[in-house]
Design a protein around this nucleic acid. Sequence first.
DNA 1: CAGTATCCAGCTAGATACTG
DNA 2: CAGTATCTAGCTGGATACTG
Lengths: 115, 115
Amino acid sequence: MENKHDQEDCSHTHLAIQDTLYVVSGKWKLVILSILVNDGAMRFGELSRKAGISPRILSKELQEMEMNKLVSRTVSNTRPITVTYGATEYADTLKEVIDAMIKWGKNHRKAIAAN
Amino acid sequence: MENKHDQEDCSHTHLAIQDTLYVVSGKWKLVILSILVNDGAMRFGELSRKAGISPRILSKELQEMEMNKLVSRTVSNTRPITVTYGATEYADTLKEVIDAMIKWGKNHRKAIAAN
DNA sequence: CAGTATCCAGCTAGATACTG
DNA sequence: CAGTATCTAGCTGGATACTG
């Protein structure tokens, strides 16, 4: 019984880590998010230029981030249409994770340098 | 001047995130670490069997983790030699990061499920 | 036993060109 | 403008066999 519980807890925990890792890993997700947070909402092309990401990759990343409610996508009825991407309020909840990563990463540099 | 400072802060921050990401990302690093933390130090073969990782990958992961001071490697002068791997005390410092990831991941499941 | 060597499949990211 | 299609290079992880 206890074993079963332990395993379940463990797999839930593992799943939670995987989920977070998925959202935060990869070459661009956090770069995109930080640009949208710091510079505010902007259009697809502008974001592409500012981040230096080719459209194919940017499109894919934004779709995933939208599914994860980290960015919002707003279409304007101009001609041709314009699309604006912005960081959501929900994206702020990631701050705790990112801050923990920043803190550990900074200390780790020192820990490794101090051979 | 302010710009320069901002950029430096930003790049340091970005670097710190990358460093942390490097240590926790990938398919096996946290799995290996949790086994060593939960079950204690053990030998290469045992770890390979317990985690279900082929020797090539396990060896590579352990080397990286040793360089990052997350695992210790101890050679015994038996014949043939035996090698024991264990989680270091320093590995405990990662707990903050991992806990933040677990917490966010668990909440995120709910947030996404509540469509 | 504790790895390393070799070979290989699949995924990630990018360049470039194209479409509504 | 906001993407999608196509093609490609390089990296990650894995199976298997081998060595000291």
